[in-house]
Design a protein around this nucleic acid. Structure first.
Lengths: 220, 220
DNA sequence: TAGATTGTTAATCGATTAACAATC
DNA sequence: TAGATTGTTAATCGATTAACAATC
């Protein structure tokens, strides 16, 4: 089958959110020197149906071969490509508090070929400190930086109160993606098209608390 | 309408995952001294349909009043109760690396009335250090600690390689909930019923990268 | 009472699963 | 070729939205 144009039809977010999971499992298979896999075998490992795997992948193209299955390495490379791994995405971290610090040293970015090109904070004690060869700059200079350097994604790791004004500034100098760790709901008023991915840690924890509470009540 | 028993029917995860968002919005309304709200007004703020709000809430009981809407404070308290806020949930953090450090000082837990009762690490240089009156203990002692103290949730902030063995240990001494920041897929073999909430930061970032890449390709 | 808005049933929409012809 | 497994269409399932009677 020919590879489909990604733009042809809108891919549902449910599918998109499963892709990184395929990415991780395939990486693991490669690490274990497994060269080929059928949708059935993969479905057993991942606890989803083989049908769903085939449907998901066929949104992007026919990556498999009848009677054979999927070549692990080539499927991995297809999915990597779809997700923009090693496509030169650049990123800055805004806010070098605990979250910012936890992220700057995280292999997360490197694993996906995303380059962190700038760190910013407003605290004079923090400005000038160094993480991995990168010096923390004054957040006042952030617009100049983004104008001079192409920045795809900004990690928003600052307090809620400053989140929206910062995003507004950044999107006016061309930043398109925001990885939002603040509890603010991001709303830009200048009409620019941006992409926001919220990491609401509190929401995640509460979903777990719900389960725990149900369990406790059942125990009574 | 009478309050329904939470256990009557299985609530879908889609609904559960929206509850913390209601919780946040209601909190905000209280902060702004808004006493009552209709599903329509709330739907406009939250960018979802009024119908969905009414459906969601009615899974748990009739919290509103015809012709009036919802009392913000009482709805907030109902949702808090459903999510187990201030219900005495206890929590330990396993792994005091960057993630553990970012979490121990995070108001996240306190805001939801969850008490952090223990911190653990394996590094001799880290054991003994103090965060908010809590001293980091040797992870070797973790089972004793959980036997002596009731622990509902363990935050797994250790490397992937140790995640599953640690979870296995912890669930054998009664820990039921795992907030998993490691990239490991948690699988327990001892047949205990546990709840796992995964925070796959990498997956979240990749979903954002997908959007950015689509945008870039469209620009060409 | 009249107006407003809920709670709930019915209709619609979308996502998942099943089935199977195509084909390696 | 025979067996295996995909790609894809059709059936099912579940979640969201619409509609409206109940009722405050």
């Amino acid at each position: 089958m020919n590879k489909k144009n990604q733009m042809d039809k809108k891919i549902s977010t449910a599918v998109i959110r499963r892709l990184p999971r395929y990415f991780r499992y395939l990486r693991e298979l490669i690490r274990n020197d497994i060269m080929r896999i059928s949708s059935r075998e993969l479905s057993e490992k991942m606890n989803i149906t083989a049908s769903q795997i085939r449907q998901d992948l066929n949104n992007f193209g026919g990556f498999g071969q009848q009677g054979y299955g999927y070549n692990v390495k080539s499927l991995y490379s297809e999915i990597s490509h779809i997700l923009g791994v090693d496509s030169g995405i650049t990123c800055i971290i805004v806010g070098m508090g605990n979250i910012g610090k936890a992220l700057v040293n995280n292999p997360l970015f490197e694993k996906r070929g995303i380059k962190i090109t700038g760190l910013f904070d407003s605290d004079p004690d923090v400005i000038g400190t160094k993480y991995n060869e990168l010096v923390v700059s004054d957040v006042q200079t952030i617009e100049d930086f983004c104008t001079e350097n192409n920045v795809d994604i900004a990690v928003i790791a600052i307090p809620k109160a400053y989140a929206n004004e910062t995003v507004e500034k950044l999107c006016s100098v061309g930043v398109k993606g925001f990885w939002n760790f603040s509890n603010a709901e991001i709303n830009v008023t200048n009409g620019k098209k941006i992409f926001v991915e919220n990491v609401h840690l509190g929401d995640s924890l509460m979903a777990l608390c719900y389960d725990i509470c149900c369990e406790k009540q059942e125990a009574n």
